[in-house]
Amino acid sequence: MFVCASFRTKGEPKGVCHKSTIGLLPYIDEEILDRGLDVLVTSTGCLKQCENGPVMVVYPEGWWFGKVDSENAVDAILDGLEEGEPSQDHLL
């Protein structure tokens, strides 16, 4: 699972993803552990989806999610991952 952290080429964090996902990363990790999911979470550089940010990508499924800016959004995405279907509420 990739979570955009908006790091740019010069190493400066900018944008909506950086502001929103920094606080959510610990929650995402905790929820994955609590649910017993076999998922590795990695924060990334800018994924060039700023208008949809914060952005999360689930691979190998190739599911892109936007507006992942709350614990409720994370829960919906992880629920979908457990069910094998992407959460339609945040799917890009």
Rank of each mutant, 00 (worst) to 15 (best):
C46G: 05
E71F: 02
L25A: 04
G45M: 14
T9A: 11
W63L: 07
L81E: 06
A5T: 01
G62L: 06
Y59I: 05
G11K: 09
M1E: 02
K14C: 08
G80Q: 06
P13R: 08
L37F: 15
G84M: 09
D79E: 15
Q88N: 10
I77V: 12
G15S: 10
T42P: 00
G66M: 00
A76S: 13
Q49N: 13
S20A: 14
L24I: 02
C50N: 08
H90N: 11
M56S: 05
D29S: 10
V74R: 00
D34P: 01
I32K: 06
C50M: 12
E82T: 13
E31Q: 15
E61P: 04
H18T: 09
M56C: 08
G11H: 11
I32L: 11
V68C: 08
F65V: 07
T44N: 05
E31N: 11
Y27L: 13
A5E: 04
L40N: 13
E71G: 08
I32F: 08
D69V: 00
E51K: 14
E51F: 10
S20H: 10
T44H: 05
N72L: 14
E30Q: 14
V68F: 06
V16G: 01
F2P: 04
D69W: 03
R35E: 13
C17Y: 02
H18C: 12
L37R: 08
A5I: 03
D29H: 14
P86W: 05
L25I: 14
D29T: 05
E31M: 15
P86G: 04
H90T: 04
L91D: 07
V16K: 08
C50T: 06
V39H: 02
L33H: 13
D38V: 07
S87T: 06
P13S: 11
G66T: 02
G23Y: 06
E30I: 00
R35D: 14
I32R: 01
C46R: 00
W63I: 10
E12T: 13
C17G: 01
G84F: 14
V3L: 10
G66Y: 04
Y59L: 13
D34N: 14
A73D: 05
K19H: 10
W64K: 03
L37Y: 12
G66I: 03
Q49A: 09
G66W: 05
L78Y: 06
D79C: 13
L37C: 08
E61W: 07
G84I: 10
L25W: 04
N52E: 15
K19Q: 14
C4E: 02
Q49I: 00
D79M: 13
S87L: 07
D29M: 07
I28G: 00
R8P: 01
D29R: 15
H18D: 09
T21L: 02
M56N: 00
F65P: 01
P60G: 10
I28A: 03
N52V: 06
E85I: 14
I77H: 00
S70K: 15
H18K: 07
E61N: 13
C4G: 02
L91R: 11
G36V: 12
H18M: 09
